[in-house]
Simulated assay, not measured.
Amino acid sequence: MSLRPLENTRIDFAEKSDADLMAEVADGDHASFTELMARYKTPLFRFILRYVGARSEAEDLLQDVFISVFSKAASYDPAWKPTTWIYRIALNKCRDYGRKQRLRKFVSITRPDNEDEPGSYTPEPVDLGPNVEDIVARRQEISRLSAAIDALPHKMRSALVLHTIEGRSQIECSEILGVSRKSVEMLVYRARKTLRDKLGYQP
């Protein structure tokens, strides 16, 4: 199934909510599906990329997410927020990916979203002056942090990415993860504590 945006579409979707679009997608409306993709493509890709850490895999998983959104639209329950439902699909895809193979290096949270994938990242030229040791130490620290996040259990990593990195509220995280707000708070706390303990950071 090719998920390419429909060309020359002249429908005005400005007045339509995500829920409206989901209802139309459930009826097989391709134009509404294209609009839904346009709204979610960037944030979903960013989330998936930060979870799996490799651009090519993230692109494939994003494709899989939208295929599932379209194929399962008829079973979508309007009681759910479209955002929650779609992110749950994405989260399950990431979890399944993690079960099949060891996740690649986690994307550094300090890197811009439009950088190349980690394996081909080339740092910007720097002045190799008196601070070169500090620069090298910082890059090594980022690498250690990335590896430590990569090793976190699924739910802890998911909560950390959604809440701390993506900046989503505890309520939204709880809906996506299917746990209570208190559980989200605890998962993020445990994730941070695990990172501190593993990396030797002081509270």
Rank of each mutant, 00 (worst) to 15 (best):
D127N: 15
K93L: 05
L195D: 02
F70W: 08
D96Q: 15
I142S: 10
E166L: 12
E57M: 11
R144W: 01
E133H: 09
F70T: 01
R10A: 10
G129Q: 13
L128Q: 13
D20E: 10
Q63V: 03
L145P: 08
N92V: 02
I89R: 09
S143Q: 08
P203H: 02
Q101H: 10
L145D: 02
A147V: 04
I149D: 03
E172G: 02
R102A: 11
G53Q: 04
P153Q: 03
T194S: 13
G129K: 12
G53V: 02
R4F: 01
L44Y: 01
R55G: 00
E185C: 11
S174T: 08
N131H: 14
A191C: 02
E185R: 12
F66Q: 06
I86M: 06
G200A: 01
I11V: 05
F33T: 06
Y76E: 05
L152C: 07
A19N: 01
S183Q: 12
D20H: 13
V184S: 06
R46N: 06
A151F: 00
G167K: 04
S71I: 06
I176P: 09
D77Q: 10
E124T: 04
K198T: 12
L44V: 04
S158M: 01
Y201D: 02
D150E: 15
P203T: 01
H163E: 12
L91I: 07
P5S: 03
E117V: 03
S146Y: 00
I142M: 14
N8Y: 02
L177I: 14
M1P: 05
T9K: 00
Y76L: 06
L128F: 11
C173M: 15
Y97W: 09
K93W: 02
S143I: 08
R55K: 11
R95S: 06
L3W: 08
C173I: 03
G98T: 10
R111D: 07
D116E: 06
L44W: 05
A79M: 09
L21A: 10
V25G: 01
K72F: 11
G53R: 04
P130M: 03
W80L: 08
Y40E: 02
L187R: 03
S56I: 12
I135F: 14
N92A: 05
A151G: 07
R46W: 15
T83C: 11
A147Y: 02
G129V: 08
R55A: 09
M156K: 06
D150T: 10
S183E: 14
A38H: 14
E166Q: 10
T110S: 15
H154G: 05
S75W: 02
R55F: 00
L103K: 04
D20P: 06
A31M: 00
K16E: 06
R192M: 08
Q63C: 04
R157H: 13
E115W: 01
T164V: 13
S68D: 09
G167P: 11
C173F: 08
Q140V: 05
W85F: 05
E35W: 01
S146D: 07
V161W: 03
C94Y: 06
E124Y: 09
N114T: 05
S2C: 00
A58M: 06
Q101K: 15
R50I: 00
I171V: 15
H30T: 07
R192T: 14
D27W: 04
Q170R: 14
I142A: 13
K16F: 15
M22G: 09
I176V: 14
P153R: 02
Y121W: 12
K72W: 04
A74R: 13
E24R: 13
